[in-house]
Design a protein around this nucleic acid. Sequence first.
DNA 1: ATTTTTCTTACGGTAATCCGTAAGAGAAAG
DNA 2: CTTTCTCTTACGGATTACCGTAAGAAAAAT
Lengths: 221, 221
Amino acid sequence: MFSKVLVSDDLGSINKGVLTVLETLAVEEFQQVQYCDDAYIKIKRGIHDNEPFQLLITDLSFKADHREQKFNSGEELIKQLRIENPELKIIVYSVEDRLQKVRSLMRNQKVNAYVCKGRRGLIELANAIHEVYNNGTFLSPQIEQALHPKAELEIEDYDIELIHHMANGLSQDEISHVFKNKNISPSSLSSIEKRLNKLRIQFKANNAIHLVAIVKDLGLI
Amino acid sequence: MFSKVLVSDDLGSINKGVLTVLETLAVEEFQQVQYCDDAYIKIKRGIHDNEPFQLLITDLSFKADHREQKFNSGEELIKQLRIENPELKIIVYSVEDRLQKVRSLMRNQKVNAYVCKGRRGLIELANAIHEVYNNGTFLSPQIEQALHPKAELEIEDYDIELIHHMANGLSQDEISHVFKNKNISPSSLSSIEKRLNKLRIQFKANNAIHLVAIVKDLGLI
DNA sequence: ATTTTTCTTACGGTAATCCGTAAGAGAAAG
DNA sequence: CTTTCTCTTACGGATTACCGTAAGAAAAAT
């Protein structure tokens, strides 16, 4: 497990919870700060003293107050640290769940994990620390599926069922009724047409027959 | 084995051979007639005497002579017997090998077996008697394949290629052009539609997609 | 709260398939 | 040789699939 961890969050109360998690995980030494600039200074000092921090757990938004700051957000801090200390592992612990921000942090800044503050936030944070310690990455479930929607070449369960019905001889109109009865959305004939059109493009099929044949050959149905 | 059998054939010589077969098969009691009317009378009398015939082996064509007959052919006799005595088993033993007649007799009159007089006629007759005794049916080989040409689950090369093109995304119209270019007959769009319709019925498919899926599952393409 | 984007649905037109009928060509039966 | 049957082909309609457009609903971003 990590032996030296820094926690950066402007809300002291939430910070306490994080420290409790670190205690539970048997982290030897951990410190906390409430300003991004303080985090930057502590990290630099650790390197200078030859006792560097191995992990930073940080929030993204920090309320501005009377103290003038060099870094006004966790994002700016991360950006700088990634340039100067790429070996430092970073976990973002934030209420922010906007997909673009998460996507940007994961791809551009190579953040090691992104945990959403929430009901299960601390549990997920513990998992994230474990994953990152083992050189893995972690994403809270609610953003994980949103982040990799189409990057994956995989095919959704909905599509599987749709093609399955086609292969079983149902017309698109009949499938529409089946989906309506089973409360599966989307269920309109138009939506089914559109979905099949996407699948045809995805699998380079000329028509529905070709699509079913290809998908059967791939063993997806 | 049958215990009471009636043989009806206007040619005494062939009749003898049939009787020899019955002897070989250890049939207890068998009688022979040379007129359809006589056959009808004997069958009725057997029922009346509570000792009914279990099997009738009959020819189809009977030469007309001085005696005026109620039944002028084996076919008429069979038709009447099927109405009045559906439990009586009937084997047709005839030189007739026209497919339509055989098909009609097997399907409409529910004849239990059809054996063609020929070089192996008596051997086949013995097999037929065995099969019918075990509640089966029998057809001489030369008409069997002609009678069930497409009822069989087999499928022609033409159909394979046709469905293959379908699975590869070609439209029926495109397949028509392909067949025209390759001098494969039939090649018209109408014929392709008809063939696909037969295949759909044969494989109990709702539409072309269903057909391709079924045939792929069967491993035929 | 408002705007933007995405998803779902509806509609219309064109193409393809499905289905019955019918005429002509070729094969088989009388 | 004539008739009958089968096969092939053509045609018209009904149904379904295909494709673009657009309006409304839902979700995301500001």
